[in-house]
C-alpha cells in the first residue's frame, strides 16, 4: 500500500503530516516513511532513529577516452542537453546537465565515450521500532531529482513487502519530480491551506493527479485561518476531505524546533487518527 503526500507548493505542511502520521501508525503496525523531496529532505529533522544502512546512489554519465576519440563531433551533435561539448581537441562532459540517455556513448563510432557511474546522492535507511525511515539526499550541484527518486522507490520495493504501509513525502510542485514520486502511489493526500494561495495551488496539484489518474483526498492544514473556499471547492468537486489540522501557533513553534506534534496536541491527534483509519480501510480494501 503506497500513500504519497504531496502539495502544489512548498511550505504547506507536507513534512509535518508525513512524519507525524508515520509515527502514529508505527504505534500499532509496521510502516515505511520515505522522504522523496531529495533536494531538501527535511523529514529526518523530526525523526529519531538508528541508522541501519547507507549507500551511495549513482547515475550513468559518459566518460571521454582520449585515445579512442577521432574528434568527429557526433557526440556533441547528438546531445540535446549541451552536456557534451567539443573544445578544440578535447571533449568535455558536464555531469549535471547529462540526462543519461546514452546517445553520445552508443552512437560514438569508436566507443570513445563509455558510460560510467557518477555519484549523485546518498540513501540512508533508519529504523526505530515499527518505523523504517528511508531518506535520499541529492548532492549539492546535482539538478536532476528524478533518477534518485526512482532509485529510492526501487529500494523500498526491494526491501519491504507490499503489505506494509508505505508513506512517501513527495517534493512540492507539479513538475517531473512530483510525477515520479506519485506515479506508483495507490492513494495521494494533497496538503493545502484554506487560503486563496492554498486553493490555487490545490487546483494545480489536482490537475496533476487527474492527469496521472490517481485517487486522492485533501488534508486541510492550518484550518481556521483564511476562508471556506477550499472546503466548498472540495465539496463541489466531490473530493474527500480527510482531515482538518487546526491552525495553532504552538504547532509552528514545535515545528520550528524540529519536534513532532501528534503526541503533544489532542486535536491534531484526533485528526491524524481519522487519517490513520482511512489508510487502514484503504489497505484492507487493497488486500482483498
Amino acid at each position: 500500500m503506497n500513500i504519497a503526500i504531496a502539495s502544489g507548493k512548498g511550505g504547506t505542511g507536507k513534512t509535518t503530516l508525513s512524519t507525524n502520521l508515520a509515527m502514529l501508525l508505527a504505534e500499532s503496525q509496521k510502516v515505511v516513511l520515505s522522504d522523496l523531496d531529495v533536494e531538501e529532505p527535511n523529514s529526518g529533522l523530526f525523526i529519531e532513529a538508528e541508522l541501519l544502512h547507507e549507500e551511495n546512489k549513482f547515475k550513468m554519465i559518459p566518460e571521454w577516452t582520449k585515445d579512442k576519440c577521432t574528434l568527429c563531433g557526433i557526440c556533441q551533435d547528438v546531445c540535446n542537453f549541451h552536456a557534451v561539448i567539443q573544445l578544440g581537441t578535447k571533449i568535455m562532459v558536464f555531469p549535471q546537465l547529462c540526462h543519461s540517455c546514452y546517445a553520445c556513448s552508443e552512437l560514438c563510432p569508436t566507443e570513445a565515450l563509455p558510460m560510467i557511474p557518477k555519484k549523485m546522492g546518498v540513501l540512508k535507511h533508519f529504523n526505530s521500532g515499527n518505523l523504517s525511515f528511508i531518506e535520499s539526499r541529492l548532492d549539492i550541484g546535482e539538478e536532476q531529482a528524478v533518477p534518485l527518486i526512482a532509485q529510492t522507490i526501487q529500494y523500498v520495493n526491494e526491501n519491504f513487502s507490499d503489505n506494509i504501509i508505505r508513506i512517501y513525502d513527495a517534493p512540492p510542485g507539479t513538475s517531473c519530480p512530483v510525477i515520479e514520486a506519485t506515479k506508483d502511489a495507490d492513494f495521494v493526500m494533497l496538503v493545502t491551506e484554506p487560503t486563496p494561495f492554498g486553493l490555487h495551488d490545490l487546483k494545480l496539484a489536482m490537475e496533476t493527479m487527474r492527469e496521472l489518474k490517481k485517487d486522492f483526498g485533501v488534508v486541510v492544514n492550518r484550518y481556521g485561518i483564511g476562508n471556506d473556499d477550499v472546503l466548498k471547492y472540495c465539496t463541489t468537486e466531490a473530493i474527500p476531505i480527510l482531515a482538518k489540522i487546526p491552525n495553532d501557533r504552538r504547532i509552528a513553534e514545535l515545528y520550528s524546533s524540529g519536534k513532532l506534534i501528534y503526541n503533544q496536541h489532542p486535536e491534531v491527534r484526533k485528526q491524524l487518527d481519522s487519517i490513520k483509519n482511512c489508510i487502514l480501510e484503504l489497505n484492507q480494501m487493497s488486500a482483498r
Partner: peptide
C-alpha cells in the same frame, strides 16, 4: 509524453525516419 525527456535518441536510430522531435 510524461516520461519522454526529449533526448532525441529514438529519432536518430529510427530506420524509416518515423520519429520527429
Amino acid at each position: 509524453a510524461l516520461s519522454c525527456e526529449g533526448c532525441g535518441y529514438c529519432a536518430r536510430v529510427c530506420p524509416t525516419q518515423a520519429i520527429t522531435n
